[in-house]
Structures are given as C-alpha cells and as structure tokens.
C-alpha cells in the first residue's frame, strides 16, 4: 500500500483535481454506496464521504469510506468534532488509516439542532483547527495528542474547509492561514454561486502567498431548480446565492431548470479553471450523483486525471 493518496499525487503533479461527494445512507444498505461509487468512478479523483451531515444519523463516514475503497473509489473521509471527543477522534483516525483511508477532511460539523435528533448533547471538545493539527502531528511526528509514539502512525493527506461567503469577510483569509499552519494540505470551499466574492477572497489569499502553501479545491453544486436556489440561499448555513442566479433559474421553464443549473455550474467551472490559485474543483451534486459524469465531461475534465 502506498502512503500517497491519488488526490495528493494529482495535486502534487500540478494537475487540476476533481473531487465528488457521497452521502452515506440512512441505513446499513451498502448497495447505495456501490451505486454512487459506480456513478462517480472514473470521473473524479476522490470522493468526499460526509460525516452525519446536517446532524442526521447515517452510516459512519469510516465504514462508508471503507465500502467505497472496495468499490474502487478513493475516499476523502470527513470527520466532524461535534459528536466525538479527542479520544474517540484519534482512535477513529487510527482505525480509518488501518482500513486504507488516506484522505481526511477536518470539520466542525453542522450544529445538532439542524438535525433529526436536536435533543442530543454535542461534544466540541476540540475544534476543527485542533483536529487538523492532531492529524498532522500523527503524520509528521508519529505522536498522538498525549505525545505517545504511535506504532504505525497514520499518514493522511489533510483537508480543511473554507467558506469565503461567511463573515467577517476580512477574517476569512486569516483563518485560512491558521488552518494551513495547523496542518491543512488542501482546502475545499463552500459552494460558489457568488463568483465576485470568491474571486476577491482567493485574490487576498494569493496575495498572502497562501495559494502556494495549500491546494484549493473550489466547491460547486449544480442547481436542480429555482426552488433549490432559494432554499440554498435561505435555509442552508453559510451559503451565498446572489439574486441574479435565482432570477436566471426562475427565468427558464420548470422542465429546463436542471439543464440551466448544470449550465451555470459549467460556466462557474470554466471561470474557476482560469482563476489563479484554484487547483481543482469539488463537485457536490447533492443526491444527484448521476449528473457528475456529464458535468465533468462537458467541462472537458476527462479522462481523469487530465495529462
């Protein structure tokens, strides 16, 4: 087993990376994972596996990642600090590595009040910054948080999230720098609909020299309808969908909504490929994995990886 993940290899070679996403099932049905894997295989370099996203109980991201490996996809295991304390997080990182999981995305996690079990106690023993440093120390020093020398330490490719659309805007670049210092090798951003704001953010990051220190994968989510656009704007935390995008989605007949959504997504990808400091894209086609192949092909990003 090589220590280097496929995603890391592609980014290191300076190739434009493409990642996708797979939400594990609300149940133990592995067929759903295999189905999603088959839709994504060959079109993305790695697949993010969400960790009980929106605080709804699903198959664990570790187990779903292991199933993806079996199905021939490389996972990026998401790990949130909402549900596990530092003991449990470290233990699961060791377990994940032992199962061949080579990429991790360290997140805080959606607050549990968004989910189906809002009565739950949250943990937040450490934050996502601490988790980044923990995974880095495991890899680079071979030590756990207590300083104990691990026998076969995990050597993961470490990712973090950044949201250029959250506030306060000026602080977002400082926080990105902190995440890089803490251990982030790559960044996946929130879905981009407001290209102007994203451009402003990455320009600042570039001026600070941050885009040389970390690989930035810009997030895109194809819209299915004008209803979805409005839902994303109003109901999803940290999302910025400009009025112009909503108008554009409203301007086409309902049955053409999906087509228009994909068109917008492709235009965004084209702009992102021209943007200095963007090293790849992260396609979050939410429960719409069957469209990923079409998007990647139409964007001219196949065969994976581009040589």
């Amino acid at each position: 087993m090589t220590n280097i993940s496929n995603l890391q290899k592609i980014l290191k070679e300076g190739k434009f990376a493409v990642t996708g996403e797979c939400g594990p099932p609300r149940g133990a049905n592995t067929q759903i994972i295999n189905k999603k894997a088959n839709l994504l295989k060959g079109y993305v370099d790695a697949v993010n596996v969400t960790d009980n996203q929106t605080a709804i109980v699903r198959m664990s991201s570790i187990a779903a990642s292991a199933h993806l490996i079996k199905a021939g996809c490389e996972p990026v295991m998401q790990m949130v600090v909402r549900d596990r304390n530092r003991i449990s997080l470290q233990s699961d990182i060791l377990g994940a590595w032992s199962l061949g999981i080579k990429n991790i995305l360290c997140l805080s996690g959606d607050h549990q009040t968004f989910g189906s079990q809002p009565d739950a106690l949250n943990v937040f023993d450490i934050d996502s910054m601490h988790l980044l440093r923990t995974v880095k120390n495991m890899r680079d020093e071979g030590k756990d948080m207590s300083g104990f020398n691990l026998d076969d330490p995990p050597r993961m490719f470490i990712g973090a999230a950044a949201n250029p659309f959250a506030d306060p805007f000026e602080y977002r670049v400082i926080r990105l720098a902190k995440k890089i210092d803490a251990g982030a090798d790559f960044i996946q951003t929130q879905c981009i609909y407001n290209m102007d704001r994203f451009t402003k953010w990455i320009k600042l990051a570039h001026e600070e020299g941050l885009t040389e220190k970390v690989y930035i994968l810009a997030g895109v989510t194809p819209l299915k309808s004008s209803g979805m656009a409005k839902y994303m704007k109003n109901k999803v935390a940290g999302m910025d969908v400009p009025e112009s995008v909503i108008k554009r989605m409203e301007g086409v007949p309902k049955e053409k909504g999906a087509e228009e959504g994909i068109k917008i997504c492709l235009e965004t990808i084209a702009k992102l490929r021209e943007t200095k400091g963007v090293h790849g894209i992260h396609i979050m086609a939410i429960e719409w994995e069957e469209k990923v192949a079409e998007i990647v092909q139409k964007a001219g990003l196949t065969p994976r990886p581009l040589s």
């Binding site: 805080s108 996502s128 910054m129 601490h130 959250a166 306060p168 602080y171 935390a237 940290g238």
Partner: peptide
C-alpha cells in the same frame, strides 16, 4: 459560540 470554538468563526457566521 454554539460550537465552543477556540479558533473560530465557523463557516456558518453570516451578518453577525
């Protein structure tokens, strides 16, 4: 902070 973050803010902070 709803998430007790020591190195915040998270990506969910908008308009204060």
């Amino acid at each position: 902070c709803s998430k007790k973050l020591l190195n915040g803010p998270c990506g969910g902070s908008q308009n204060g």
